[in-house]
Write a protein that binds this DNA or RNA. Structure first.
Length: 188
DNA sequence: GTATCGATTAGC
DNA sequence: CTAATCGATACA
């Protein structure tokens, strides 16, 4: 969720992610060590790593490794659940399924940029929360990472199976090429 | 210093 | 398939 001072609260359910490591992952920004851009990846978990790329897009990650052990999860797609109008305005697009599909589109829809790099994701204005119980327990599919030229074969992309809000290659993945991963069920 | 390339997207 | 567009990175 993002409480944006200008647009109010925009929120969605994370439906597609991709994992990146550190020194052992040649596709990771942290592979060659710490730089001003990726410094947050080396900090404590639970913080936002937001980077700028291709001269025009931002991507939003959740830092997951312990302090000094760079690791992050790129949030690749969101099912919008609140703040649909601000998202539509930012994206100049009406179709809810495509509002936050793809990491660049997602960051744009949420209004995220380098100013959000390093924010503590356990509190406002930008945070990640547990799913409500009724959304838990659904099947998660796994497949290769996309958009990278090295180590793409590692099956470190995860998405909500059957979701209309995930990227095209995930929607198109045949059952043969994806593995289903059990997700924790809600407590009683 | 210059050259190359992106954890991408929209459009043809 | 390619253009867009600029910071990070590689290399002389």
């Amino acid at each position: 969720m993002h409480d944006d001072p200008a647009a109010g609260r925009v929120a969605g359910v994370i439906v597609e992610t991709e994992a990146y490591g550190g020194a052992g992952d040649p596709a990771s920004h942290a592979y060659r060590g710490r730089t001003p851009r990726n410094a947050v990846m080396f900090g404590p978990p639970g913080h936002a790593y937001v980077y700028f790329t291709y001269g025009m897009h931002h991507c939003f990650n959740v830092v997951c490794g312990r302090r000094g052990e760079p690791a992050a999860v790129l949030v690749r797609a969101l099912e919008p659940v609140a703040g649909l109008e601000p998202m539509r305005e930012r994206r100049a697009l009406a179709d809810v399924r495509r509002l936050a599909r793809g990491p660049g589109s997602l960051a744009r829809a949420l209004g995220l940029d380098r100013r959000h790099d390093g924010l503590d994701l356990t509190r406002a204005p930008l945070w990640v929360a547990d799913l409500p119980a009724r959304r838990r327990g659904r099947s998660v599919a796994r497949g290769p990472r996309v958009g990278i030229r090295v180590a793409a074969e590692r099956p470190w992309r995860y998405w909500l199976a059957g979701s209309a809000f995930v990227s095209g290659s995930a929607r198109a993945a045949s059952p043969r090429d994806q593995k289903l991963v059990d997700t924790p069920r809600a407590h009683s």
